[in-house]
């Protein structure tokens, strides 16, 4: 009944979707780790990143320069948002930052709607990512391979960054205990800035991958991925890098396999299943798979 290629097709589909969730969840996790902020605006950074890329292409640049430039601009925007929206609230209750982040999301979505019109835009995929490899029945697109590899490479790079570099270690220290790290001479504002730059840069890259995979973007594109990435981060244990990546893959696999293996008339339940997984995992492990219980004073 269920053939091997079918399972393989589903496997690739889930791997790709999971990769994109994982990339976004990493960003959410980095910011949460340091600021204890669930940054709902993070999904909008994906959408904005995709639009930045389209903008640079429209300015006549080639794809190879447009991608890094859109990531850089995404990073700048992330830092700017932190500076104007979150920094004034620092030290206040966590709830006000959470609500501000929702506001930032709505602001970004509507800003793009005004500047770029609400019509969906075709996302032009660079030539070298357009191909398809076929092996008999099984086929895989170059952009799919590119998405999977760039996620894994980025994950490895980030692990090295957080364990081997001084800034990375300082970031982990800040995440562990903000006050103590400030007493040790770490410039907290600088660390937070780096966190936002890093997270937003990764989100902009995800925007490129998302647009390339599905071929079109519109101002609301970031919403569902943002919510899913949040679930992924919580499932994995928010604040943990490995947990976020794992959470992203769990979610991607759950979504695709639930559609693929349940009878077709239940395909519509995919989002419901993601949330069900969230509830079950939180019931069993309230701090997520890799999360640590946080002691509150």
């Amino acid at each position: 009944m269920v053939s091997a290629t079918y399972i393989l097709d589903l496997f690739v589909g889930s791997f790709v979707l999971g990769s994109m969730y994982a990339l976004l969840a990493i960003g959410m996790s980095i910011i949460y780790g340091i600021l204890r902020l669930i940054n709902f605006a993070h999904g909008a950074m994906l959408m904005v990143g995709a639009y930045f890329y389209i903008m640079f292409l429209a300015m006549g640049l080639d794809p190879i320069t447009s991608l890094p430039l859109s990531m850089a601009l995404g990073a700048v925007l992330g830092v700017a948002i932190d500076f104007f929206a979150y920094r004034p609230l620092r030290g206040g209750p966590e709830l006000s930052m959470l609500i501000t982040s929702l506001g930032v999301y709505i602001f970004l979505e509507n800003l793009v709607r005004i500047i770029a019109t609400p019509q969906p835009r075709v996302f032009p995929l660079p030539e070298f990512l357009k191909g398809v490899y076929r092996y008999g029945d099984f086929s895989v697109r170059v952009i799919e391979i590119f998405t999977i590899i760039s996620t894994l490479v980025l994950f490895a790079a980030l692990v090295l960054f957080f364990t081997k570099t001084k800034v990375g270690i300082a970031m982990r220290a800040t995440a562990d205990d903000l006050e103590a790290s400030v007493l040790m001479g770490i410039d907290a504002n600088r660390i937070i800035m780096i966190a936002f730059a890093l997270a937003s840069m990764v989100a902009a890259l995800t925007g490129f991958l998302w647009g390339g995979m599905y071929g079109q973007v519109d101002p609301t594109t970031g919403f569902m991925p943002g919510v899913k990435a949040f679930i992924a981060a919580v499932v994995g244990g928010i604040g943990s890098l490995t947990g976020s990546v794992l959470g992203g893959y769990i979610l991607g696999y759950a979504e695709i396999y639930s559609v693929g293996l349940l009878p077709p008339e239940y395909s519509g339940l995919r989002d419901g299943i993601s949330f069900l997984i969230l509830i079950i995992i939180l019931l069993i492990r309230p701090y997520g798979l890799f999360g640590r219980e946080v002691e509150r004073v």
Binding site: I256, V259, P264, S267
Partner: peptide
Amino acid sequence: DTFHTNDKDFSAQIARLKD
């Protein structure tokens, strides 16, 4: 087969169709 208006990823439905 079924899908939702705002779905972006149809890989599972496509895999089933191929199968």
